[in-house]
Structures are given as structure tokens and as C-alpha cells.
Write a protein that binds this DNA or RNA. Structure first.
Length: 211
DNA sequence: CCCGTGATTTAT
DNA sequence: TAAATCACGGGG
């Protein structure tokens, strides 16, 4: 057996959401299901800035049963049901009672692809398996039971560190977040981050030079 | 373009 | 209590 890769630790997740969102790009999300690894490279993230951010569930410090998880310590998973159908996977960042998070929107599948395909029967090609937050939740077998877990210690759900630094700036594209048109001036803030040119992202940023 | 789907939130 | 909303995806 090869030595296991290190996972992203508490110190990493205690940073601000923009830093974490950028540095998660190129790292590997892992979920072990029935002893089998489902894994993929994170290629798209969004930062949610908490009380000041109109697009965040925790805007104005709103603290309800759903949003309670956002007030947990950095490194805690935040999974919620979206549109009655989709389970969206976020990672809480920063200190306790600072309700900020990063939404993981897309991954490039690396392991357990057949298992992903079983959860995503409509997917016709690898780029359809997890190219969007709802698709990712299904492909990775995530549901509400995965809300509130500590990703720095959990046995079956975590992020492996494949690189110790951020990707080069020239490989990261910043764009407006998806599906937050209601958030007035926050709707256009450049808080979405994608790996430039990667075919597994949900929606290609319009200003991306296809080089 | 439109709609399913159901928990959460907000308005009565 | 009831109505509106919603960090989406699939189909026409």
C-alpha cells in the first residue's frame, strides 16, 4: 500500500473564504463509500462571505436550523437540500461564529468513475458526471447525513492535499457566482473560481480565452 | 424556454 | 397556517 496523501488541515480551513476557494482548486475531494473511493480534482469553487454577503445563507447573521452549520469551525461540511432535489456540498471556513463557506461546484473525476456513473445515469460523458454542484452531490453520494462533519478528521469524507501552493494566477479564472441574481450588488462580485480551460466546470466563464 | 421538487423562510 | 423562495438540472 502506498502511503496515504496528507489531507487539508484545520490551519488551512481557518483562512478567509476567497483564499480557501482559490487554493482548493487542484486539490482532491474524496468520499469512501462501502470501502470504495470516489475522488476527483476540484475545478470550480465559490466563496460566500457571510454576514455582509447578500448571496450567503448567513446574510445579516441569519442563524436558523439550516444555517447553524455555517457558524461552525473551519473545516466543517455544510450540506443542504437545494430546490427540493439537489444536495449541495460546501466547506465552512474561518473561526467559530464567523459564518463563511466555500461551495464546491465541480470536480474532474479521478477514481470511482463507475460508481459515479451509477448515481448519474443521465451523464453521457465524464464531463457530465460532476460539472455542477447538484451533479457533484449525486455523483459523490452526498446527502443531509453528511452535513456538519469535521473534514479534518472524518474517516470517509475529506480533501487530499495534492499541492502545497495555490495554482499559478494565470491558471485561475475569476467570475461572477452562478444562480445568485437576486443578490443585488453581490450578484456580480468576482467570487467564483475555475481552472482555466478545464472541461469539467459547470458553465464556462464568458471572458475565458480558450487559448 | 419551462418545470419538478420540498425544506426554509417570510408573510398573514 | 399559507405563500413565496431557492447557491439546480433536465428536457423541449
Amino acid at each position: 500500500m502506498p502511503a496515504p496523501l496528507p489531507r487539508l488541515n484545520r490551519k488551512f480551513y481557518m483562512q478567509d473564504p476567497v483564499t480557501v476557494a482559490k487554493q482548493l482548486l487542484g486539490q482532491q475531494l474524496v468520499h469512501v463509500v462501502n470501502g470504495q473511493r470516489i475522488a476527483g480534482l476540484i475545478v470550480e469553487t465559490e466563496a460566500y462571505l457571510g454576514e455582509i454577503d447578500q448571496a450567503a445563507h448567513s446574510f445579516k447573521g441569519r442563524r436558523t436550523r439550516r444555517t447553524e452549520t455555517m457558524f461552525a469551525i473551519g473545516g466543517t461540511s455544510y450540506v443542504y437540500l437545494n430546490y427540493g432535489i439537489h444536495h449541495l456540498f460546501n466547506i465552512v471556513v474561518a473561526e467559530i461564529d464567523v459564518p463563511q463557506a466555500v461551495l464546491i461546484r465541480a470536480i474532474e473525476p479521478t477514481e470511482g468513475i463507475e460508481l459515479m456513473q451509477l448515481q448519474r445515469p443521465k451523464a453521457k460523458q465524464p464531463t457530465d458526471l460532476a460539472s455542477g454542484p447538484g451533479k457533484l452531490g449525486a455523483a459523490f453520494c452526498l446527502d443531509l447525513s453528511h452535513n456538519g462533519l469535521d473534514l479534518t478528521t472524518h474517516k470517509t469524507l475529506y480533501v487530499e492535499q495534492l499541492r502545497s501552493r495555490c495554482l499559478p494566477k494565470s491558471h485561475i479564472v475569476e467570475s461572477a457566482r452562478i444562480g445568485v441574481d437576486y443578490a443585488e450588488q453581490w450578484a456580480k462580485a468576482p467570487l467564483r473560481f475555475t481552472i482555466k480551460g478545464n472541461p469539467h466546470v459547470s458553465v464556462k466563464p464568458s471572458d475565458e480565452n480558450s487559448a
